[in-house]
Write a protein that binds this DNA or RNA. Structure first.
Lengths: 195, 195
DNA sequence: CAGCTGACAGATTTCAATATCTGTCATTCA
DNA sequence: TGAATGACAGATATTGAAATCTGTCAGCTG
């Protein structure tokens, strides 16, 4: 790639890294590749990220944060909590399924990255669970839900729907019954939240 | 191994294969190893199993059937359906966690084998879901549960508890909060089954 | 002087030659 | 005669030498 004259920022390195990961996949994407794509020496990349692992973690975090952002709007809404919970879970499922279906290789790449970075994933899950907790709390306040520990309940809802957002089930998201399975699980969960 | 004088049966081959898998792991266990362990030529093994894949599938099926058997007693019981459902799920979780904790390498071996054999796993899941369906049906009959499609409900319960029996979550079964997480999910599900 | 370079040591990956394995089958053995 | 053998072809796995990569740092450059 032609050396760009703009100053080298962490942001530009992250963008180039995403591109390299998209092109070469997680196994063959090297720091040297990233530097080459930016037209700089690989030593310069190490000025912004202490290690290759740190660089990959930063890319992972960016990607996960984008997903969280897509959902936060629904969680912060002010409609009927039951509908909001259902919409939120459906949006999470739809987003994951769309990404996995649209570009399976890229999705596989990010699945590898998330596997490497327990910490970033843990924070992402904490973030999503916090969004769910907000919905559950609103529901308890309005009398739509019963729960003596909204945080634990939110966690349970998140874990119970794992099959519809955890990458390890990605293969099954395109199968015929997936939508019906999702509805069946969410129906039982919503009934279980009634006072 | 010393050549045993007994006649060579599929059963003896399966036992030897399990032993070889236990010793060498899934990647390095070969048909030649199995034949050596039995003191026969590898051609003899091919008289009983058409391919290496068929042999591994038979071993997988045996292992999965053993797990199903452990649970069928609970499903066939005649106590309170809600308790039975809780006990059945707890027994499944306990069995999986015990196997994964007692011999992680062997568990990893069988995780690889199940990954290879979608068919055997599918049948195993169908078997477990049938056991669950029986409990749900009993509950509907006795008025303890509400469901207009016990089979779909059983499937939903099985999928919602995936985190506590699916091998891809094995790492997390030993973490401190696992038991509490399990209880929280099962509580919501059982509440969701009430009429 | 702040930011970048490129040479370097040790770790990791690639690649091609070599060895082993899978699955078949004509032959042997009891 | 029916079960077992072992040699064989093609596929797969192992190995070790060569190439590449990671992470550091002394020195260059604008």
């Amino acid at each position: 790639m032609a050396p760009t004259s703009e100053t080298l920022t962490a942001e530009r390195i992250l963008e180039a890294t995403e591109e390299v990961l998209r092109r070469h996949g997680p196994a063959k994407a090297t720091v040297v590749d990233v530097a080459r794509a930016l037209g700089v020496s690989h030593g310069s990349v190490y000025r912004h990220f202490r290690t290759k692992a740190a660089l990959r973690e930063a890319v992972t975090k960016r990607w996960l944060d984008r997903t969280s952002g897509e959902l936060s709007g629904i969680a912060a809404g002010d409609g009927d909590p039951a509908t909001r919970l259902r919409d939120w879970l459906a949006a999470l499922f739809a987003a994951k399924r769309r990404k996995a279906g649209a570009d399976p290789e890229l999705f596989a790449t990010y699945t590898v990255l998330t596997g490497e970075n327990g910490t970033a994933v843990g924070e992402h899950i904490a973030d999503l669970t916090a969004q769910l907790t907000r919905i559950v709390r609103d529901g308890v306040a309005s009398g739509d839900f019963a729960s003596d520990d909204p945080q634990a309940t939110a966690r349970a809802v998140f874990q119970a729907t794992g099959r519809f957002h955890d990458p390890c089930y990605a293969r099954e998201w395109e199968e015929p019954g997936a939508e019906a399975d999702f509805t069946a699980v969410v129906d039982v969960l919503l009934r279980g939240l009634r006072p």
